[in-house]
Every structure is written in structure tokens, then in C-alpha cells.
Design a protein around this nucleic acid. Structure first.
Length: 952
DNA sequence: GACTCCACGTA
DNA sequence: CGTACGTGGAGTCC
């Protein structure tokens, strides 16, 4: 798709950049702390980061026409064969370096830069061969290498960047520079090195001969060969040493002679620098978590290849976006596209983009109003190819439309039988609902299809999905007819004769409309592309029968929100504020000065230096000693009451608790709108299939402590409703584990309806169900839950504060009684390694490529994720199924009660007057029947005037 | 201003 | 050396 950039005119000089990949990767590795460059999955990327940065900098500053990277192979080279000790004595490659060369090669591939290797030779030889060819062709060359052997390659046309520290600083050496620094001309450097020796390669030279002596001899005799020939003439101790070391010198000369005529797999001309493969860059940089570098990369290449623009060549026409002036025009348009789905793209009010802080801009973006709806028919096809004939899209203005037009639009939007394609239905539906325009009939949401295809992906922005799956651009100027938008959009472009006064829709520029048109057009293509993927991944049913219907339900829940008592929240806020103040003051009094109690860094000083609390056994993090609760609790037990240390700890912990609680309360107060809080559910974030909740997060409202539960008391029943009803699945994950493992003992426990942990405790400890002590119960409870997370005996011992041996015994006892659980957990991982993915009971997959990683940490993380994904994911499937079924039943029975919240295994409803019993029965029925497992799905229901009350 | 780290709330 | 999330303060980098 990407057009080759115009070959820089042949008369202009060519410039080669050739990098010794291995030596520079190592430099980068040692220049940057690995612990600061680690992905969430545990892969170190410091070398990749440093290397990529260096490469981009060189491309930007040096403007090479051709670029090649040379790499060593792990296999022995001819040098090893002639000298066993070659490069012996080197330290083992650090564990953190592992895998990074491969990642660098992947980066190179994404940048379409050849990463060249040759069996039996080193990177240096490859560099030397390219340099030789470039010299012969009369090119300029810049070598970048941390290996001094490259010095011999320097000429007037070939310069060397030799790093002085890290990868950021280097010296540029030309022949004069080499001579100034090493006292001999480049072509004699290897003679000097042969005499002096090269410790990095484990090549001893002549004892007592350093660069100065060697240079003197070379100047005097001309070359190492001549020196050897005249060895007898050299006097003194060094002369003796030389004569004794002649064999070493000859061997060194043989080994440090770079091979300049290799048969290279990539020809010099084929190293032509071109624009990167965006489709490869995106997922790779996602995985590496390189966001800044990604931006820099596109900047560097965009300025370098403006004509390529890193996007598709314009073969498709820009849609013509007509602004509907009347209801008749809209209806005509709709009737022309009666059967076919229309893509729906919104133009939003962008006036909030100029807010000063990011938080304000984010907020503005979330609440931006829809100003126009753009309807885009499927692109014309010409023999399967995109057509150069533009489609005609219709924009319907929302604020300036007359009543008739708006009502015609409303009818179409509400018509469930009129198919619509969108990206992020829930978002669009919300913005339209704000304008009184309910949306139905979405048959596509590329946000969701993109997620089902790649559930681990972080970013599903439409433009990025388009770039990855279609290798296309969403920029109007990249399409035929889009030339007039070629500017950034910031300033009027020549030939684009419109200004604010001529805006077709108030607040919407012509370019905004064009962009909406392009997005609509691309929605059709992206939809087809992703659906092919959904079929491959057997995810169609999940898409149509679960996620799409769920999106509509979530939309309603978000729009509805949950009522809160602002007064109660404010009282709590004040209460927690007092508590924060009091505990802070008391803490300051202990140490005699103020300290930011929220700063782990300052706390480290106070705790371990001023108060001299014992550091023995205290966990460390990147910034020093940890100050988390676990540590503080531990320290508390090590200090006597009434000591300053003890008192400080007590107040610090009280302060922590109060601060956290207040933070939650403050956030809630800030998000109240009209007495209700409207969270947003993210349907495409959690890789297991769970929902997440944000702005605010209502899935992490405190419940474990009494103070925390006060907050739940502020979530109340709204006007016109009689109560709140909560319904939660009891031990759903354990039930799923029983089902998936088929463990008879566990299944029996659930069938018998016994208290699970007492049941398990009785089996593990060999006592009667009634005789399980509280301590025993909590131990097996921790273990039961831990198993689904891939808990190790070490982890269990830490959590329970028992020895590793005891923890191991406990686990063995457990598996002795519930052997199928162990078999199942093993099988899940084995199967996932085979398939590359795990599956839930509804067929939701999670792809875990790291299961086969060479990196142990990565692999083990993937193994634990593989253990957990089917369990957590099946629970997510089940409650999603239940939500859809409950919602359908509410509608069918025309109940006024409504679903408000979902908290993973719990649903919260607002009960309409007189509907309590009906609702309760309905919820119990639908939730209980959401999956057919070999154990019953138990649901607990509670009713009350607040969330807290209802949970009792 | 943007990003990272730490800490901590939930299931 | 236990999974999945989101939020906010402090500190740091640019």
C-alpha cells in the first residue's frame, strides 16, 4: 500500500548509515537502567529503547539515503575456529538483555531497515563489506559501532561514530580524528591493535606495549608486518617481549582483519531507506509500550518522506458530504439506501479542546455535544477494488435543524430495523441521547469487534484500528479530492474558501464533515475486515448475542446513573477531612516537623532514618524501602507502644485510611449530576471479558471496613422508586472452577449447599465440617481463591504468614482431596500453549503468545493469566448473559424497575413501587439460569434503601 | 505538562 | 513469587 518514496534524485549523493547492531544494543543496555524500562508483561526494553532512539536520531540528523543494521549470530565465527579463546572470558549476557536483540530486529523490520546477519561472520564483517561497496560506489558512509575494529574502515568518505558514553554521546572520527586519537592512520589501526592486544576479544598483545609504543614502531617501520620482520632490531625489554609474542601478534592481525567481501543477503541498493510499515509499528510499539518514541518515529519519517505520509496512497475518493437542508432530503437519502447499513459518524463540539489542563480537556471530550450526524453509505466497489468515484454522505445538523428534519432523523435513529454501523455505539448513543435522540439498531461496533479480535490490546481508537487492519489513513487529505484539507486544519488552506461564517453547520468546519465522511466510509471496510477475523476466532456469537446487546443495556445504565445523597457524602467528606487533619497533626507532633504523609519518599526518610525503625525484612521497591500497609503493620509489631515510632505508625496508618476514603468521597461528590452519579462502563478494556468502570469507578467503592461502608450508605434509592435491590453470585469463580475441572468432591460440596470453605477445610484438615476452626477456614479460603490466580506456595505462605513448608503441605493436602482441580489447572496451561489461547464457557478467547516466551518471567505471567482467564472470563460471560436476560424480562413484563450497576458478580437495581417481589423472583431466575453448569449458580438478593442496606 | 511510580480500593 | 481493573498524589523528565 505504501508508495515507495521518491528515490532521491540519482545525481544527489548517496549516504549510507551502517550500524553494528550488537555493539550498539549493548551500549544502550548499559546506558539505561533496565528496571526503568520494563513492560507490564515483564520484558525489559532498555536496550531496545536506547537503540531505537539512537537510530531515529541518526536518521533525523544524518539524513542517510540507505540504512543497514548488522548483527552477530550466536553461532561460532571463523575467528572462533582459528582461535578457541576468541572473545572468551566475557561475562555472561545479563538476564535482562535476553530477547532484546530480537525485539530490535523486529523494530528494524517495522522500519523496513534490513537487519543483516551472515553465518560464520560477525557484524563487523558485514559493516566492512557494506562500507567497501559504498566506497567503490562513491557514497558517503557513517558507521556507528562500539567496536574499535571498525576504526580500520575510516576514510575521507567513511566516518565512524564511536560511542563515548551510552548511546547518546559519541565522537565522529574521520582519518585525521583517528590519527589524533590513536596516533596512527585508520588503515594502520589494526596493526596497532594487534600489538597492543584487545582485551574485549580476549586477544593478548605484546606485554608492556601500549598504544604509544606501538604507534612509535608503526611510524618507524610502516606496519606490523614490517615490525615483525624487524623484530630483532628492537632493543630492550619490550623488544624481548615482542619477539616472545610474535605468534600472538600474527594471530591478532589475522583475527582483527575485517572481511570486506562477504556475500550479503541484502544488497547495498536494497538498504534504501523508506517509510516504516505502520501496520507493523503499531502493535510492536504497543507491546513495547513505546509511546513517546512512536510519536518521534512518525515525526522523523513524516518530515523525511512527506510524500509517503505513512499512509495509504490516495486511491479512494473522499466522500462528498452534503448537508441535509430538509426532512425530504433526508428521507430521500434514506430511501435510496433502504436495505443497506449506513455508517454513522458524529461531528462533535470541539470547543473544549482548548481547555488548559489535560483533565479539563478529557472532561470536555467526554461531554462534548454532537453537532451533526453524518450518514455514510458503503463505498462503491469496482471489481473488488476501491472506487475512485466518491460516495455521497449526508450530514444532518442537530442544533440548526428544523423540527421536521430532526424528527425524521429521530425516527431513523430509533428504528431498530434500520441497520447502523458505528465505532463505539455506547459513546455515540450517549451523546445522541443527551440531545433527546435515542439510538437503536446498531449492527456493528468496531470498538467491540476490534476488542474481540485482540482482547489484550490497549487502544482501540478508530484511527489506529484503521491504520492496523486496513493500512489506511483517516485523514481527508489522503484521499482523492482531499487536497484542500492538506493543511493541518489549523489554518485556512489556500484554495479552501470557507471561514467560520460559512460553516455549513454551526461549530462544524467543512473539514470536520470531510473527516466524518472518511470515518464513515472506512467503518464499512473496517467492519468487513474485523468480521472476517471474528469468524476466524469463532467470536461471532459472542459479538451478536452478547456484546452488542450488552452495549445497549450498559448505555441505559450509564444514562440512568444511581442516586446519591450529596448531604451524606459531604458529611463524610468533612468527617474524613477532620480525621486526616487530626492524624496528620499527631504524626507531625511525633517527629517534630511536617512531612508529606502521602510521599513514600519522605516517609522513607522519616521512618528509617529519623525514627530509626528496623529495615530488616522490609521489602524494597524502585525508590527504596516500601511503605505499604503490609510494611507498616509489620513495623508496628516490632515497636513498643508509646514509642515515637509506634505512634507515628499508628497516625500514619489512620491518615492513609482517611485519605483514601476521602479521595473516594471527593471524587464521588465531583461526579454528581442532578443528584445521580453516572459511571461509564468500559466494555473493551479488561482482557478477560470483564467490564471496568470509570469516571468515576463505581466498582471499587469500599466495603470491607465500617468507615468504607458508610460510603455505600450514601448510594440511595432515587425519587419515584421504593428501594434498591442487590443481587450477587455466591462464590461464582469457585463454582466455575468446580464445573470446569469436573472435580467430584467440589461439585458435591456445591450441590450439598454446604459452606464451601468449611467443607474444604474439613477435607483438608481431616475434621468434621462443624469442627473447622476459624483459622482453618480462612486458610483454605485464601487457598481456594488463590488457586484461580496461579498462587504459589511461596505466595500462600506470605499471605497467611506461615512457613513455605506449611503452605506447601496445605496445598498438597488440598490437591490430595481435590485432585481434579490440579489436573484442570495444569491442563488449561498445556492446552493454551498448544492453541495459543484460552477459552471461557461462552467461547471468549484470550490470546497469550507469551506462553511460549523464552523469558521465564514473561512465560510464567502468561501461565498465570492462562489459569485465571477461563475462570474470571466465564464469570464475566455469565453475568453479562444474566444482564441481557434480566433486561429482556424487564422489558417483556413491562416493569419499571431498572438495572443501575454491575460490579463483576453483583447487579444493583432500582425497584419501582410494588415490583419488589416480581423483580426479586425475576432476577433470581435469570441470574441463576445464565449458564448451565454442573453446579448450581447461587444468587443472594437483598433489598434496602441504600446500597449498604440492600447488601444486608 | 506529561509521564512514572507507589499505594490502595474492588471482584 | 496471584488474576483483573481505575484513581490520585508525589516525584521526575522534558
Amino acid at each position: 500500500m505504501n508508495p515507495s518514496p521518491v528515490n532521491p534524485a540519482s545525481e544527489s549523493p548517496k549516504k549510507l548509515l551502517v550500524v553494528d547492531g550488537h555493539s550498539m544494543a549493548f551500549r544502550a543496555f548499559y546506558a539505561l537502567p533496565p528496571e526503568s524500562f520494563i513492560t507490564d508483561s515483564g520484558q525489559y526494553t532498555n536496550a531496545v529503547h536506547g537503540f531505537t532512539n539512537m537510530l531515529l536520531k541518526l536518521i533525523r540528523e544524518e539524513q542517510p539515503t540507505h540504512v543497514a543494521l548488522a548483527f552477530d549470530l550466536d553461532t561460532p565465527t571463523f575467528r572462533h575456529q582459528s582461535y578457541d579463546e576468541y572473545k572468551g572470558g566475557r561475562d555472561k549476557t545479563p538476564e535482562e538483555f535476553r530477547g532484546q536483540i530480537d525485539l530490535i530486529k523486529q523494530v528494524a523490520e517495522a522500519l523496513r531497515i534490513p537487519a543483516v546477519t551472515v553465518e560464520g561472520y560477525e557484524a563487523d564483517d558485514i559493516v566492512a563489506t557494506y562500507v567497501t561497496q559504498a566506497e567503490e560506489a562513491g557514497w558517503q558512509t557513517l558507521i556507528v559501532s562500539g567496536d574499535r575494529d571498525a576504526l580500520q574502515l575510516v576514510t575521507e568518505n567513511t566516518h565512524l561514530d564511536y560511542p563515548t558514553s551510552g548511546v547518546s554521546k559519541s565522537v565522529r572520527l574521520d582519518p585525521a580524528g583517528v590519527e589524533a586519537k590513536y596516533l596512527v592512520p585508520p588503515q594502520r589501526y589494526r596493526d596497532l591493535a594487534a600489538l597492543v592486544g584487545e582485551s574485549a576479544d580476549n586477544l593478548p598483545g605484546v606485554p608492556k606495549v601500549g598504544p604509544k609504543t606501538a604507534a612509535k614502531w608503526i611510524t618507524e617501520y610502516g606496519s606490523a608486518a614490517e615490525i615483525i620482520a624487524h623484530a630483532e632490531d628492537i632493543r630492550g625489554k619490550v623488544g624481548e617481549n615482542l619477539r616472545a609474542a610474535l605468534a600472538d601478534v600474527e594471530r591478532n592481525l589475522e583475527l582483527n582483519w575485517l572481511v570486506r567481501d562477504l556475500d550479503l543477503p541484502v544488497q547495498l541498493e536494497d538498504c534504501l531507506l523508506t517509510s516504516p510499515d505502520r501496520e507493523a509499528v503499531e502493535p510492536l510499539f504497543d507491546a513495547l509500550q513505546f509511546n513517546q518514541i512512536r510519536e518521534r518515529l512518525f515525526e522523523v519519517f513524516a518530515s523525511r518522506f512527506p510524500e509517503a505520509d505513512l499512509s495509504a496512497e490516495p486511491t479512494e475518493a473522499l466522500p462528498e458530504v452534503r448537508v441535509a437542508a430538509s426532512a425530504a432530503e433526508l428521507n430521500t437519502f434514506l430511501s435510496e439506501h433502504e436495505e443497506a447499513p449506513l455508517a454513522l459518524s458524529l461531528c462533535l463540539d470541539r470547543s473544549g479542546e482548548s481547555r488548559s489542563t489535560k483533565a479539563q480537556r478529557d472532561e470536555a471530550a467526554r461531554t462534548a455535544e454532537a453537532l451533526a450526524v453524518v450518514l455514510v453509505p458503503a463505498p462503491h466497489q469496482h471489481e473488488g477494488e476501491p472506487s475512485r468515484e466518491p460516495v455521497t454522505a449526508l450530514a444532518v445538523p442537530l442544533s440548526s435543524a428544523d423540527e421536521e428534519l430532526e424528527s425524521a432523523l429521530a425516527d431513523w435513529l430509533l428504528a431498530a430495523e434500520k441497520p447502523k454501523l458505528l465505532h463505539d455505539v455506547k459513546d455515540a448513543g450517549k451523546r445522541l441521547a443527551w440531545r433527546g435522540l435515542p439510538l437503536r439498531g446498531a449492527v456493528e461496533d468496531t470498538l467491540i469487534s476490534g476488542y474481540l479480535v485482540q482482547p489484550d490490546r490497549r487502544n482501540f481508537a478508530f484511527d489506529d484500528l484503521v491504520a492496523q487492519h486496513l493500512s489506511s489513513s483517516t485523514e481527508p487529505s489522503d484521499y482523492i479530492g482531499g487536497e484542500r484539507f492538506a493543511g493541518s486544519g489549523e489554518e485556512p488552506v489556500q484554495g479552501s474558501l470557507f471561514d467560520a461564517a460559512q460553516e455549513p453547520v454551526p461549530g462544524v468546519t467543512e473539514e470536520d464533515l470531510a473527516r466524518a465522511g472518511v470515518r464513515g466510509m472506512l467503518l464499512h471496510s473496517l467492519s468487513s475486515r474485523l468480521h472476517a477475523e471474528l469468524v476466524d476466532r469463532k467470536a461471532e456469537q459472542l459479538f451478536y448475542e452478547m456484546e452488542i446487546p450488552l452495549a445497549e443495556i450498559l448505555l441505559q445504565m450509564e444514562l440512568t446513573g444511581i442516586a446519591v445523597s450529596t448531604e451524606m457524602l459531604q458529611e463524610l467528606d468533612a468527617e474524613f477531612a477532620r480525621s486526616i487533619e487530626a492524624s496528620a497533626q499527631a504524626a507531625y507532633d511525633v517527629v517534630g516537623h511536617e512531612v508529606k504523609l502521602g510521599s513514600p519518599k519522605q516517609l522513607q526518610t522519616v521512618l528509617f532514618e529519623e525514627l530509626e525503625l528496623p529495615t530488616a525484612g522490609v521489602r524494597k521497591n524502585k525508590t527504596g524501602y516500601s511503605t505499604d500497609v503490609e510494611t507498616l503493620q509489620d513495623l508496628l509489631t516490632k515497636t513498643s507502644p508509646e514509642t515515637p515510632g509506634n505512634q507515628f505508625l499508628v497516625n500514619l496508618m489512620a491518615h492513609r485510611d482517611a485519605t483514601k476514603l476521602r479521595q473516594t468521597v471527593t471524587g464521588l461528590i465531583e461526579s454528581v449530576q442532578g443528584g445521580r452519579i453516572h459511571t461509564t462502563y468500559a466494555q473493551t478494556v479488561a482482557a478477560t471479558g470483564r467490564l471496568s468502570s470509570l469516571h468515576p469507578n463505581l466498582q471499587n467503592i469500599p466495603v470491607r471496613t465500617a468507615a468504607g461502608r458508610l460510603i455505600r450508605d450514601a448510594f440511595v434509592v432515587g425519587d419515584g422508586y421504593e428501594s434498591l435491590l442487590t443481587a450477587d453470585y455466591s462464590q461464582i469463580e469457585m463454582r466455575i472452577m468446580a464445573h470446569l475441572s469436573g472435580d467430584e468432591a467440589l461439585i458435591d460440596a456445591f450441590k450439598a449447599g454446604e459452606d464451601l470453605h468449611n467443607f474444604v477445610g474439613a477435607r483438608v484438615f481431616g475434621v468434621g465440617t462443624e469442627e473447622v476452626s476459624a483459622e482453618q477456614r480462612s486458610k483454605v479460603k485464601a487457598m481456594s481463591y488463590g488457586l484461580a490466580y496461579g498462587l504459589s506456595s511461596f505466595g500462600l505462605s506470605k499471605q497467611l504468614g506461615i512457613g513455605v513448608d506449611e503452605a506447601r503441605n496445605l496445598m498438597n493436602e488440598y490437591f490430595e482431596r481435590f485432585g481434579s482441580v490440579r489436573d484442570y489447572l495444569r491442563e488449561v496451561v498445556t492446552q493454551a500453549k498448544k492453541d495459543g489461547f484460552t477459552s471461557t464457557i461462552y467461547g471468549r478467547r484470550r490470546y497469550l503468545p507469551d506462553l511460549t516466551s523464552e523469558n521465564r518471567q514473561l512465560r510464567q505471567m502468561a501461565e498465570r493469566a492462562a489459569l485465571n482467564a477461563p475462570i474470571q472470563g466465564s464469570a464475566a460471560d455469565i453475568i453479562k448473559r444474566a444482564m441481557i436476560d434480566v433486561d429482556a424480562a424487564l422489558t417483556e413484563r413491562q416493569l419499571q424497575s431498572r438495572m443501575l450497576l454491575q460490579v463483576h458478580d453483583e447487579l444493583i437495581f432500582e425497584v419501582a413501587p410494588g415490583e419488589r417481589e416480581t423483580l426479586e423472583a425475576l432476577v433470581l431466575e435469570k441470574m441463576g439460569a445464565a449458564a448451565d453448569l454442573s453446579v448450581p449458580l447461587e444468587v443472594h438478593v437483598g433489598v434496602g434503601s441504600s446500597w449498604h442496606q440492600a447488601a444486608h
